[in-house]
Every structure is written in C-alpha cells, then in structure tokens.
C-alpha cells in the first residue's frame, strides 16, 4: 500500500505532549561557595575575588541563554552550591523561570554531597524525559572548586565517574586558583582532566564556551579548551 495503511489522522490537530520543548540539554553547575572563595587571589594578570567572578560569569551565562532563541528553549539548568551546606539554587528548569540570585561565600567544602545531589536530580530528570518522550543531548555537569572537599566524597565520585564511563554524562572539572586538589577532581572525571583557572580571563573563557554549548550542544570548543595544557 502506498499510503499509510492504518488510521493515521494526518489532518487533525496533532495532540501535543505537555512539554515546553521536544529537545533538551540538561546542564548542571556544581559550584563551590565555601569561605575560601571570598579570598582575593593574586595572579599574573592582577587579583580577583573568586566569588565575585563566579557570580558575574554565572549571571552572564544565564543572560546568554535567555537571549539565545535555541538555548532558551532547550537548556534545562540546575545549579547546586556547596559552602558550609549544600544548597539547591534551582532544580532543572528553563532560565526564564529562574529568579535572580547572588552567591555568598562561607563555610566548608561539602563537594561529595553536592555531586551526589546533582546525580540524583539528573537521574530524576532523565526519567522525566523518557516518560514524556523528550529527546535530550548528553547531560553536562560543571564542577568548580577551589579547595579540598571536607566531606566523604568517594561514593559520589564513583557514581559520577561511572556515569561518565557509561557515556551518560559529560563532566567538566574546574579548579580555581592554586589550592584545589587536582587528583580529587580527577576522580569525578575519568575522561576530561581538571582545568585550572587563576584569573578573570579564565572565568570568562570557560563561561563563554559553556554558553556556546547551550545553543549548539555539538560544538566541541569547550572540550578542546579542556584538552589544552594548563
């Protein structure tokens, strides 16, 4: 039969699933806002207050996504901070639904708990996508820290690393300044080595490339940048 051989309503109103977009890019930022982030860091190109740089660049990222016609529809953004306690700033959501916020530095560095929460939320989100027939690109997780974790991180690192190895997640580990533990960040990311950023230019470049990925998830500029020598 040349025409479709069953009752296929070509002319009726297509019943849309109850979704805001048929395609998603889950992006999770796991950000350090422990006390050390408020310390001014000296670099070869001047000094920066890390938490201020972080705030300014996260805001730029959100504005980029808001203003890009594609990124604003597909980017599902989740932000988790860890400074004293783990705080879910926003669960996976469109940026238009995210209220303005400002991160304040303080407390210790519970990195393990933060990544654990990020993985739980990602699993929940993936279930939501599958149930609703929403396609998604490989989820991205950015882990930024300037120090050593103060909690037990091993189980979270194992879960995270397993997901990366199963190709279910892309992790970009970033160490800020010179005091972070590269070997520990590496445990979360078996495929991509941690990138160190020490100055304003590093922050700007990282968030620029991340922004580009939100409008074009197949753009590999961020991978190339991570593979460049520190």
């Amino acid at each position: 039969m040349t025409y479709n051989d069953f009752n296929f309503d070509l002319f009726g109103d297509y019943k849309q699933p109850n979704i805001d977009s048929s395609l998603k890019l889950p992006l999770c930022l796991v950000l350090d806002n422990s006390g050390s982030m408020s310390i001014r860091t000296k670099s070869t190109r001047g000094s920066i207050v890390k938490i201020d740089e972080l705030n300014s660049n996260v805001e730029k990222l959100i504005n980029y996504i808001k203003n890009d016609p594609k990124a604003s529809k597909i980017c599902d953004l989740c932000i988790i901070t860890f400074g004293g306690r783990v705080n879910l700033v926003t669960d996976y959501n469109l940026v238009e639904n995210i209220s303005p916020f400002r991160l304040v530095a303080g407390g210790n560095t519970p990195l393990g708990e933060a990544v654990g929460l990020a993985i739980d939320l990602l699993n929940k989100r993936r279930d939501h996508y599958i149930e609703n027939g929403i396609e998604h690109y490989k989820p991205i997780m950015l882990i930024m820290s300037d120090g050593e974790p103060t909690d037990s991180y091993i189980e979270s690192a194992r879960r995270c690393s397993e997901k990366v190895s199963r190709k279910e997640l892309k992790v970009y580990p970033v160490g800020i300044g010179t005091d972070f533990r590269e070997d520990i960040l590496q445990e979360f990311s078996p495929l991509i080595n941690p990138k160190r950023i020490t100055d304003m230019a590093g922050f700007v470049r990282l968030f620029e490339l991340l922004s580009r990925s939100t409008s074009n998830p197949t753009d590999d500029s961020i991978d190339k940048w991570f593979n460049e020598d520190i």
């Binding site: 070509l10 002319f11 977009s21 048929s22 594609k70 597909i74």
Partner: peptide, 19 residues
C-alpha cells in the same frame, strides 16, 4: 526558523502540513 519549529514540536502545524 525550522529549528524553532522543531524544538516547539511543530506546534501549530498538523502532521499533513509537515509532509
């Protein structure tokens, strides 16, 4: 743009129109 239509699951178009 077809890109936007695709992301919006072709809202406003029936299946025949997609053909």
């Amino acid at each position: 743009s077809l890109d936007v239509l695709r992301i919006n699951a072709f809202k406003g178009y029936n299946i025949f129109e997609r053909y």
